[in-house]
Amino acid sequence: MGTLIQHLIKLTDHRERDLLELTMSKALIDLLPLQRVVIARVVSEEGSNRWLQVARLDAKGGGMVADPLHVDFSSLPKLEDEKDRLRCIQTRSRVEVALQGDAGPRISYAPLFESSRTDDDGVLEIHAPKGLTEAEQGTVDVLLHVYRNMYHLLAYSDRDGLTGLFNRKSLDDTFYSAVLEELDEGAGSSAYAPLDSKPVVGQERRHRVPPNYWLGTVSVDHFNAIGEKSGHLIAEEVLLLVARILNNTFRTYDRIYRLGGEQFAVLMHCPDEGLVLAAFERFRTNMDKFNFPQAGHITACGGFTRITADDSPSTALERAERAVDYGQHQGGNQVASYGELVRKGLLGDLVNVGDVDLF
């Protein structure tokens, strides 16, 4: 059993936000007389909000972590189905439920964040055989306070300063840690992985990619003309609104990035190319219908590609951007699949030799 100081050191050692919830859960189980710790986040899809358990740890051993990119959204409980969790985030205060009277087991809920402005809202759910003492609750508060500080610190380094979307550094990190290093090491990936999952010794990272990851890019049509006509501030406002449309169109657990300038990217896990195309078409339609204040009618092109076992972020982005370029050369306001363009003979397939791309 480690000390509080030792667990705080572990919590502040991380450079990836995805590991913070599990580290905090392990600290709570190690330091306090608890039965279970659950961390549940609010995820959304097309205006519907549900609960996703991103981490669960039991005192007797075992537990699981969730990969949001693999989750079946329709199988998740709705917010109103977990009334105590919902009350916790609505009131931004701790909620405690006694299961068998004051001396019996109870569940307490604490909001992960003090403000509802975060796009990663959720609750810390603690199952205990009895009520926590004041000192024990103080330990929970300290760990949660450090977790919040670390989360926001790491979020700042992962985010684009203008739009608040993930930045290119975050794309590279996620590509290697979440895409090419699947916990189950293969194509049959599950949304939930047991905590005792072990990598296959000697297996190369690049061969662990599952077959259903997709990377897409989006580029605003005629963006330079917008800046020249309306000015720098209006062009920045356009980018902010494009980011909002992206957030409102794609699922909470799809990763949305700003690559720079008018270019954005989306990393998603989806079982079928047609569903990916439909998602990008929804975005294109939402852009087409939106009236940008002071800028008027603005469109965008999207392109996407399936991630392969030999990909790096750069090679996958190159293919997606070629699909975008094709759409813009065809007049803009289009979405294209790189694979479909190649199948139709409209693009030559890329062959990578070292750092040189051959067409």
Rank of each mutant, 00 (worst) to 15 (best):
F304V: 08
R87K: 15
G131A: 15
P199A: 09
R258V: 02
R319K: 03
Y253P: 07
E181M: 10
H7K: 11
K26A: 03
V335T: 14
R206F: 10
R251N: 10
E318K: 09
G302I: 07
T299N: 08
R15L: 11
S190N: 09
F292M: 10
V266G: 02
E16Y: 00
A103S: 14
F250H: 04
L112G: 04
L76Q: 12
D120F: 10
N212P: 00
D357I: 12
H14A: 13
P194Y: 05
A128S: 15
V200K: 03
L52V: 09
D288G: 05
S190G: 09
E318G: 00
D184F: 01
T217G: 02
I29D: 01
S115F: 03
S116D: 10
G339F: 12
A155Y: 00
R87F: 10
P194N: 09
D121A: 11
C88N: 08
H145A: 15
V324T: 01
T91W: 02
V179D: 00
N212R: 05
D325M: 02
Y213C: 00
L32N: 05
R92G: 03
L165R: 07
G122R: 02
L350K: 05
V218W: 02
V146M: 13
D355Q: 10
L180Q: 15
E16Q: 13
G2L: 14
N247E: 10
F304M: 10
R306E: 06
P105C: 08
S44T: 14
G122Y: 03
E80V: 15
H14K: 13
W51D: 01
D160W: 00
V266T: 06
A66G: 06
V142L: 15
N49K: 13
G296Q: 07
P68A: 08
H7I: 09
T308F: 06
R50D: 07
A128E: 04
D119W: 04
Q330M: 12
H222R: 13
D173A: 15
K60F: 09
A278L: 12
Y109D: 04
T174E: 13
L124E: 01
F264N: 03
V140P: 11
V123F: 02
G231Y: 08
A235V: 11
F113T: 04
L4G: 07
S189D: 01
S189V: 00
I126P: 01
Y326G: 02
A187P: 04
E340W: 10
M287N: 01
N212V: 01
P77Y: 12
H329S: 12
